[in-house]
Amino acid sequence: MHLCISGFLIDSKKDDSIKFEFVPDKKFNDQIVQLLGHKDFYAMPAGEWLLAVEQADQISELIGYSLPTELKLYIGVEA
């Protein structure tokens, strides 16, 4: 299992296809999950969750990779 960040156009009424997909290195899993307010990786709820701009910025800083700011970003656990 791993975290996956996916991005979609902000106005997805015309195009709801995925525009960005990124799997952070597993070494960041616990830090990212705690940043999102969860106890640990396995306590993270199922599904995909919209990231606030501040959360995306914090994750970018943590992992050393700039996530796109022009998209709606979601994060979830994938098998």
Rank of each mutant, 00 (worst) to 15 (best):
E70A: 09
D16H: 13
L9A: 05
E21T: 13
E78I: 15
K26I: 14
M1R: 12
P68H: 07
E78V: 15
I59F: 04
Q55Y: 02
A79L: 05
T69D: 08
S12D: 15
S12W: 09
T69W: 08
L50I: 14
L35D: 01
T69P: 00
K39Q: 12
I5L: 06
K72G: 00
K13S: 13
S6M: 08
V53A: 10
L35F: 03
P68S: 09
K39R: 15
S66Y: 01
M1S: 11
A52C: 01
Q34P: 02
L62C: 07
A56Q: 02
C4R: 14
E21Q: 12
A52F: 08
H38D: 07
S17E: 10
G64R: 02
V33Q: 04
T69R: 15
D15Y: 04
E21R: 09
I18D: 06
H2N: 14
E61H: 05
L3P: 00
A79N: 07
L71H: 03
L51D: 03
I59T: 05
P24N: 04
D30L: 10
F20N: 01
D15W: 03
F28Q: 02
E21I: 05
S6E: 09
K72A: 08
F41A: 03
Q31V: 06
Q31R: 15
D15H: 07
Y65K: 12
K39S: 14
K27G: 06
A79M: 11
I10K: 15
D16R: 13
K14W: 06
K72D: 13
I18H: 02
I59A: 03
I18P: 00
V33P: 01
A79E: 15
Q34A: 07
L36M: 01
E61P: 00
K19R: 14
D30C: 02
H2V: 09
L50K: 11
F8S: 03
I18N: 03
G76A: 08
S12K: 10
E54I: 08
D30P: 01
